[in-house]
């Protein structure tokens, strides 16, 4: 199969390479340059000045947002993983292959349907005279403030990531060698203990990758914190949209964006390292 470079081969391989180099890598690299530019009289000028980094890193608001975003995304990754696991476990082990295919089929759909409108729809459930408080009112309780809370933000993160996390967990659970589970059972290992001692360790890679994706998506999402969480306190993603949309402070927004990328890379390497720890493959 090994062949020298030919016109035929390049016709297929080059377009993707060129497109992603020009319109994906170049903009991200440009972001680095941009973070050293200066803004004078509302106009950006090419420069090599660390003023944006110094200004942003000197603000306590920035570090508060950073801490908050990190905490929210970590919480989302943990909560979503825990809530998704019984679902993916049940789909993997309790459904016949036919129903399992249906479940996968149904879980793929929401991943590709407008997240934005689904978040708006949650407002209908969570607002003070929305569906949930309406139900509470029927039994003489409430209204409970649900919208514009961290709880609502978490609902939004779950909406964004739950189907994907279930699917990723599922794909690692399906490939577990079932004889391992039978062996555990024959050795009189209890039900719960089998899950923790056999199933979870065997599926570790998939479970960690699923949590990582949940973290990445929640870390960068600005829709849930704004439209469900009420925009206060501010997350880094809100800080980026505000800084970008309100004038020419793009260099400062670039500082935030680069800090986010660095954080995500660190988390991703740590997570992948943890996932494959002790594996020789």
């Amino acid at each position: 199969m090994r062949r020298s470079i030919s016109l035929y081969g390049l016709t297929f391989s080059l377009p993707m390479l060129i497109w992603q180099l020009v319109f994906f890598v170049a903009p991200l690299v440009f972001l680095i340059a941009l973070s050293f530019w200066t803004v004078k009289n509302f106009k950006m000028e090419p420069d090599f000045d660390t003023v944006n980094w110094v200004t942003m890193y000197g603000r306590s608001v920035f570090w508060q947002s950073y801490g908050l975003t990190l905490a929210l995304a970590t919480a989302a990754a943990v909560i979503t993983s825990i809530l998704a696991f019984p679902c993916s476990f049940a789909i993997a082990f309790k459904l016949s292959p036919k129903y399992r295919q249906w479940a996968i089929f149904l879980m793929v759909i929401p991943f590709f349907t407008s997240y934005l409108v689904r978040v708006y729809s949650w407002q209908i459930f969570l607002s003070d005279n929305g569906i949930i408080n309406g139900l509470f009112a029927q039994v003489g309780m409430g209204p409970f403030p649900l919208l514009n809370t961290v709880f609502a933000t978490m609902i939004g993160y779950l909406t964004l990531t739950f189907p994907l996390v279930v699917l990723l967990q599922l794909f690692s659970l399906i490939f577990i060698d079932r004889t391992l589970i039978e062996a555990a059972h024959n050795l009189r290992c209890g039900r719960i203990r089998t899950v923790f001692a056999v199933v979870i360790p065997s599926a570790r890679v998939g479970l960690v990758i699923a949590a990582l994706f949940c973290f990445i998506l929640s870390f960068g999402d600005f829709v849930s914190p704004v439209y469900l969480g009420g925009g206060d306190p501010t997350t880094l993603s809100i800080l980026i949209t505000d800084t970008t949309k309100s004038g020419q402070q793009w260099p400062r927004a670039a500082v935030i964006a680069l800090t986010m990328i660095a954080t995500l890379l660190a988390v991703a390497f740590a997570a992948v390292g943890f996932a494959y720890k002790g594996r020789t493959k």
Binding site: Q20, L28, G220, T244
Partner: peptide, 16 residues
């Protein structure tokens, strides 16, 4: 590319 948060991609694209 789909794993890069959209706000970051959006900003980078806009600037570039």
């Amino acid at each position: 590319p789909p794993t890069i948060p959209v706000v970051i991609l959006g900003l980078a694209m806009l600037a570039f």
